[in-house]
């Protein structure tokens, strides 16, 4: 669970942190998607894209152990996901803090580490130092004593990221962290996540609507739409041929000269060519 920092290539099973085989997800009476196969290694940046309601968050719920697969397997470090796995840092979707909440950010980050501990020891020096280090790693030290209720969307995402990172997880699950950010803050946050992935060797799974801002950083993409899941390198997955083959209907992937993509033919556009 340490940051080994080993840049040497780890080969074989060990290097696959998350694996899924023929995974089908959904609820008792409804399959959301089926037949997903993927394997993500340490220190990979993975985007999960697809239309609203396609089941992107469902994948996170499976990894968090909040939901069981209908069939197939999903494993983290070779084991079935379990609720409360300390190897996972999680930032939920539409994660809002009440604007009336007058509690400093540092406290939330610290609770990310010690919130599970029983008993009364709120002044632990160790926890405080760890919280500071986490704030430092996301460049949010100056926000430490600001109340959560007054932070902007971008600032809050940094604090949430620190809260998720403070326990030194191997996997980061970020559910639509870009949804409330303007272009510049979106770029900033993505650079930050990319830094975390590269320097800490954390595997980050990020749910997003638009793949284009992510493309410069991505190792893998998971495209979920119409009950099917395509995974692989962005350049392999995001082609007219592979998506047409997967869906059995004509899907067009358009590219502009800057490398931006737009996927047309599966319910809605995922990407925008400006």
């Amino acid at each position: 669970m340490n940051i080994t920092g080993s840049r040497t290539v780890e080969v074989g099973v060990q290097s696959n942190l998350i694996t899924a085989e023929n995974l089908t997800a959904g609820y008792r009476d409804k399959t959301v998607w089926q037949g997903a196969n993927f394997a993500f290694g340490r220190g990979e940046f993975v985007a999960i894209i697809g239309p609203n309601g396609a089941g992107k968050t469902t994948l996170f719920r499976l990894l968090l152990g909040l939901q069981q697969p209908i069939s197939g397997t999903i494993k983290i470090f070779g084991e079935q996901p379990k609720r409360g796995n300390p190897q996972i840092g999680y930032v939920p979707q539409r994660h809002i803090i009440d604007s009336e909440t007058n509690i400093e950010s540092l406290e939330l980050v610290r609770l990310g580490l010690s919130g599970k501990k029983w008993g009364f020891n709120p002044f632990s020096r160790k926890d405080r130092d760890a919280a500071w280090a986490a704030l430092e790693s996301v460049g949010a030290v100056e926000l430490a004593h600001r109340p959560l209720g007054v932070l902007s969307g971008g600032e809050l995402q940094r604090i949430f990221l620190a809260e998720a990172l403070v326990s030194n997880p191997d996997i980061l699950l970020l559910d639509e962290p870009l949804s409330n950010l303007d272009l510049r803050r979106e770029t900033d946050l993505l650079h930050l996540v990319n830094d975390v992935v590269r320097t800490r060797g954390v595997t980050a799974l990020l749910i997003a609507h638009n793949i284009n801002p992510l493309l410069p950083h991505l190792d893998e993409v998971v495209y979920i739409a119409n009950g099917r899941v395509a995974t692989g390198k962005p350049s392999q997955v995001l082609t007219s041929e592979s998506l047409t083959a997967l869906y059995g209907v004509q899907v067009e992937v358009l590219r502009d000269p800057h490398g931006n993509v737009a996927i047309i033919g599966v319910e809605e556009h995922h990407g925008a060519i400006q």
């Binding site: 609720r83 409360g84 999680y90 930032v91 599970k116």
Partner: peptide
Amino acid sequence: RPLLFASLDEDVAEAKG
């Protein structure tokens, strides 16, 4: 601490089991 965490950040606290 658990109560403070659960009050402040319910979703994450729940995901943490």
